[in-house]
């Protein structure tokens, strides 16, 4: 136990502040792309401070999953922004979908979407989730996430880094005010 306490003291708090907010940020910023401009104001207000995420791997190589897991590590600590991974789609407000949608995962993805209560947002993570990426044209691929469920937000990258994921989500939720403070 004492080893552990020593280690806890030695490690301290690792959570890093977000980089300054890009001054010239517009909707066209390559960081994220919001489909149809922006989320409804009501959804933003409702989910802005508390967003429960259900991750669905619809066909990714597991790299994007590893980066999403990394969002929870002490460096990024997405919980400080009210982002939280939940175990059941019933508890979720946001589906974070990775990978090109494979033929075999299309139905499970749809079922997950249906199981999630409204209002909800769908985030497509990574280049492959946008249009199939390198896997485009394969017999086993249906294509981007929007082929199966309506997408609200794309976060590009192959895979996007945790920081890109975090800032992308916060921009979409209109929470990224980017003062260099640890919490917005």
């Amino acid at each position: 136990m004492w080893d552990m306490i020593r280690k806890i003291r030695q490690v301290g708090i690792l959570t890093e502040p977000l980089p300054p907010f890009p001054a010239e940020y517009t909707q066209q910023d390559p960081q994220v792309e919001l489909v149809g401009g922006e989320l409804q104001q009501r959804t933003r207000i409702l989910l802005g401070r508390s967003l429960h995420i259900r991750q669905v791997d619809a066909g990714s190589d597991n790299a994007a999953e590893l980066e999403i897991i990394a969002l929870g590590n002490p460096y990024y600590d997405m919980e400080r922004f009210g982002l939280h991974i939940v175990a059941s789609p019933r508890h979720a407000d946001c589906l974070m979908v990775t990978g090109p949608v494979t033929r075999n995962m299309a139905l499970p993805l749809l079922r997950t979407y249906e199981a999630t209560p409204d209002p909800k947002i769908v985030v497509a993570v990574g280049d492959a989730a946008r249009d199939g990426g390198i896997f485009r044209g394969s017999y086993a691929i249906i294509g981007g996430v929007d082929q199966v469920v309506p997408v609200d937000l794309y976060i590009p990258g192959d895979p996007p880094t945790p920081l890109e994921l975090l800032t992308g989500m916060l921009i979409a939720l209109d929470r990224y005010r980017g003062k260099s403070s640890r919490r917005e």
Partner: peptide
């Protein structure tokens, strides 16, 4: 809203 029991997707 009524929906299927969640059975992990498929």
């Amino acid at each position: 809203r009524r929906s299927m029991t969640w059975a992990c997707g498929r």
